[in-house]
Amino acid sequence: MFEILGVPAQALFGQLLLGLINGSFYAILSLGLAVIFGLLNIINFSHGAQYMMGAFVAWMCLNYLGINYWAALLLAPLVVGATGIAIERLLLKRIAHFDHLYGLLLTFGLALIIQGVFRNQYGSSGLPYQIPPELRGGQNLGFMFLPYYRGWVVVASLAVCLATWFLIEKTKLGAYLRAATENPTLTQAFGINVPLLVTLTYGFGVALAGFAGVLAAPIYSVNPNMGADLIIVVFAVVVIGGMGSILGAIITGFSLGLIEGLTKVFYPEASATVIFIIMVLVLLVRPAGLFGRAA
């Protein structure tokens, strides 16, 4: 068996695969953030809190209504998306024509409110949520033990990412959306209801965060804090990919998962910082991120 820097190659494959799986969370979250930034021009700082909401809604579904994981996977994004639509209509709309720093601050405030409410209701140490029985156990791949649930996470997130990409790049609705991003006034003049499009886009982006939350619930701690630190990493992913670039967010999400996975083997302490080092390097070489267009 050959080794790479003292680590057996087979173990390294295992670590890379795990990294890719973690990357799927980054991909879905940054995709939502990128979609929202693309059209609304705001950095949705409550994205982490909405991810947390997804996990909690899944828990509530199970414990209050007896709704299982699979139904929650559909229902929770809808619930989170609906609250997103309310937030857009009631709050974000009012500040749409101001600098997007205000959007960031407003959503930051919202994140605090959401976190605070959940913390008051459910405490800070979190709630139990099990892996659905269909996905318990795993498969020995020879170089590692791959839990079925992890496999499912990759498949589900890839499917969602591709579907979103298809929706935006290949459908008529997507074309309207891109047109509205490019020039809202002109698109409005063509008789397209841009405000509605904006509302739906925010709802959709937020629903993606909710979806990631449900995916995360069985394997990560379900607690009010779970999205608080994640947001800043996801934000970095979006910037590296190029603000507003859909494909950039997806590809960067998965690749940064890989890089983080490698860091966890060779220098685990730095696994949360490596992303920022990459961000500085990328921005110094490519001013608008990997896939972004220069302003």
Binding site: P8, A11, L18, M226, D229, K264, P268, S271, A272
Partner: peptide
């Protein structure tokens, strides 16, 4: 032994190292 950042959410990598 491995030391992970405080906000870390995924331990799969460290568990595999522990197993090995």
């Amino acid at each position: 032994s491995v030391f992970h950042p405080l906000g870390n959410a995924d331990y799969g990598s460290f568990l595999l190292q522990a197993q090995a």
